[in-house]
Design a protein around this nucleic acid. Structure first.
Lengths: 209, 209
DNA sequence: ATGCACATTGTACTTTTGGACAGGTAGGCG
DNA sequence: CGCCTACCTGTCCAAAAGTACAATGTGCAT
């Protein structure tokens, strides 16, 4: 496994040599543009001192080389991270990552995985759930609901509190609760939050319990 | 490195034994709920024959165990993948993945990486660039949330209770409440119901008081 | 008339939620 | 070094939500 560090300085940092004794350094990927047929390796791209505008192109060039590309940034930022990963990088870490960290990353990417700081990963996954189309809409059997229950359910679907519902329907809060209990039972939801989501055709996980 | 396969059948498939000769099998994570202090291992969760509704909870439970969780699905779908990763899984593969593949995945996740099929990863990246881009906020206010707050908000957006959120994020209920208070303040909503609706771009008319 | 579903309300209770007040830690920054 | 932010936690408390075990009334169908 070869390790190729692309860095403006053109020379390896101590940290890198510690991580991979046999590592090589270069100023640009173009400098070694033919080893595609040799043994697999990893390209480590130091973009810390690169103008932001050139980074994307640099990653593309490195990715074109055929080896997994790990980007090393000085100030890991989420928008940059994903832009660069989108350009073909498979790793994104801090330029001052410890040797052990680098070896971990190497293991991950050489086996087809992606690597980025855990916080970033968490955040992106969280964000993704917002845009990924969730099929399987849990279409509630609203037919099961009586007319009065349906009124209450609609109020909840719009975020109303029990007190507000009581006022709107001119009934007691107690009665609202009674209707709600019946609704929960019929629709198989646990509480008003899940009801509100179900009424808007939004699936809920953690429906258990 | 221990390999624990959670599968309804309770017994190892040939493929798994080939991949990890020392692997163990169990019907549920609860069955072995104390080895947290022992050597690190990986939990392989077979959700192929599990009702979709229970999968999320199962992943949560497995994640609570403390080991990296790899979900094995019969028909890998992107929405499910992201949901389950959001529940704490760090891997998502086909239940019939080849032994070599499993070993690759094991290497990746045991070194802190994430693994999912390349197509999914591509899709994931592509989607994320749509959400994250610097100055293209889908909901401007969401940018005000910190990373942790966003995670909590996501959970609420899917109907989770404080207790479930606490378990999922491995924090106390108190902390969840703290985050929620901050979220309510920042997003200008009154309670978790309105937050859940707001997160799903559903207007609420009773925002007053 | 009898049974039944629906709507309504009551009391009492547990659970959940959310806020108030008060900390503690860790990392980044001037 | 303080200062700030994010993150995490605690106790105490009050409101809201939800459940359990009721009762009452109305209309409708068998």
């Amino acid at each position: 496994m070869e390790h190729l560090f692309i860095t403006p300085a053109g020379r390896l940092r101590e940290r890198w040599k510690q991580a991979f004794p046999g590592a090589r350094a270069a100023v640009a990927v173009a400098e070694i543009g033919e080893a595609t047929s040799g043994p697999r390796g990893i390209v480590w791209l130091d973009i810390a001192s690169l103008p932001p505008a050139e980074r994307s192109a640099e990653v593309q060039a490195a990715a074109a080389f055929g080896w997994p590309v790990v980007v090393m940034a000085a100030t890991p930022g989420e928008s940059e991270a994903f832009q660069l990963l989108n350009q073909g990088a498979v790793g994104y870490c801090h330029v001052k990552a410890a040797p052990e960290q680098l070896r971990e990353i190497a293991l991950v990417v050489e086996h087809g995985g992606f690597w980025m700081p855990p916080e970033l990963m968490q955040r992106f996954i969280a964000l993704s759930t917002r845009v990924v189309p969730t099929e399987a809409p849990v279409e509630p059997e609203l037919n099961e609901l009586t007319s009065r229950e349906l009124m209450v359910a609609e109020q909840v679907a719009h975020g109303a509190s029990n007190r507000e519902i009581a006022a709107a329907l001119d009934i007691t809060e107690r009665t609202v609760k009674a209707h709600l209990s019946a609704i929960f039972e019929k629709l198989g939801v646990r509480d008003r939050v899940q009801l509100a989501l179900a009424m808007n055709n939004i699936p809920t996980y953690s429906t258990v319990n």
